[in-house]
Design a protein around this nucleic acid. Structure first.
Lengths: 229, 229
DNA sequence: TAGAATTATGATAAAACTGTGAAAGAAACG
DNA sequence: CGTTTCTTTCACAGTTTTATCATAATTCTA
């Protein structure tokens, strides 16, 4: 799914790094620019950029100005990052040719999903499976529904996302840190132990299958499909 | 890629100065030694040296002897300087773990290029293999899993990290101090003998393969793959 | 080979971590 | 708004891991 170049334009280094990390993890290549002008420079220098992620609020040139200039010469897909308070800008933006909006704070999942979606639309890309089925666990992402051995179970949003993360990363040892960074919004700075509570509930709601979520002592958790034959 | 310490070992002061000038111009920090013994002394005194440049021909200890001693305990990148007449040594040298050769006379351009290349290479190696397999021992870092002869064994986090360190440094004599500095957090100031206990447990959990962790009396341990063939 | 130094080992103490249930705090919903 | 549901925090018990220590065994040195 990848190797595509993505240009990230944001004045906040921290956020840039964050976005970069998420994307690199998905095997995208990331170029960074700290303001609108630098963003445009990189845009001209790298004709093979496949997508641009633009923060709206930036010094020198804001996101819309950059977008406007890009649109003079290119139909390149553009995703804009907005703070909640800027949401009214969205109407404005779509007419200028914004492909997607992501409002801050966002979760890695949302970011990656939107990026994939936009790239898919624009031709190039990839689809993450919308229906997962493994070892008697069926998840329908669209329907937000989980079945264990054919029987539906009710999960809250967080539980659902956590299970989805586990399942998509089966066999991987996942530290609490990693889980937090992937499933929670980036501005969550609470106690990592909250994961324990969710794991507890997940395990109990999953019945027998709950044991598939293994504890790795001193490290985190791992979703494991036993294949001892 | 700069500010790194480079140790230059050569008996000719003129050549040393020359090399130093080129490297300093590239923002490297340079330590000088006039013979093999002095070179080794500096090597032990400065654990943060990033690269060693060794002349082959030197009084007291020649380049190969120095290299051999360095290789007892370290994978530090080493570049050797050879006169034309010594070029036949090169094959010999690579098996000892020489990273590059530069034959005299050389141009600054070549010197700097090789140094940069070797450091880049050794820097890239930071992205170390996620799956290690050696002599019947398989480690999957991501899954946090170890198999001995295909059979899974359960290791605690410390044991796992220790084994990983041993395996990644196979054939190296590792002092307890070095092990502590590499596997334990930097704020651990406890007894180095705790390593003994972990080694004991590792050995016993590894069964037959436990004997691959050798004791080096008065020094530390070494993970060794017997290659009697 | 005795004596000194070092390592192996088993037992135990200390520390770190997880599971759980309850309850407080937020968010969503009518 | 008040209610309900979801999410997070907290405290404590129960585990597991890690560190320490004393003693036995081994290796080295003279």
């Amino acid at each position: 799914m990848r190797g595509l170049k993505i240009l990230v334009v944001d004045d906040e280094a921290r956020l840039r790094k964050l976005v970069k990390d998420f994307l690199v993890r998905e095997d995208y290549e990331v170029l960074e620019a700290a303001d609108g002008q630098e963003g445009l420079d990189l845009f001209y220098e790298h004709p093979d950029v496949a997508l641009v992620i633009l923060d709206v609020m930036m010094p020198k040139k804001d996101g819309f100005e950059v977008l406007k200039e890009i649109r003079q010469t290119s139909r390149l897909p553009v995703i804009m990052l907005t703070a909640k308070s800027e949401e009214e800008d969205e109407l404005n933006g779509f007419s200028l040719g914004v492909d997607e909006y992501i409002s801050k704070p966002f979760s890695p999942k949302v970011l990656v999903a939107r990026v994939n979606a936009v790239l898919r639309r624009s031709g190039e890309n990839v689809s993450e499976d919308k229906n997962i089925s493994i070892a008697g666990i069926e998840m329908s992402i669209d329907a937000h529904e989980v079945k264990i051995d054919g029987k539906r179970i009710e999960l809250s949003v967080k539980e659902f996302e956590l299970l989805e993360y586990f399942v998509r990363n089966k066999g991987m040892a996942l530290s609490r840190e990693k889980i937090l960074n992937s499933v929670w919004d980036y501005d969550y700075f609470g106690d990592a132990r909250t994961i324990d509570t969710h794991v507890k509930k997940l395990r109990s709601k999953m019945g027998d299958k709950g044991s598939m979520i293994k504890t790795i002592w001193g490290m985190g958790y791992k979703f494991e499909v036993d294949e001892e034959a």
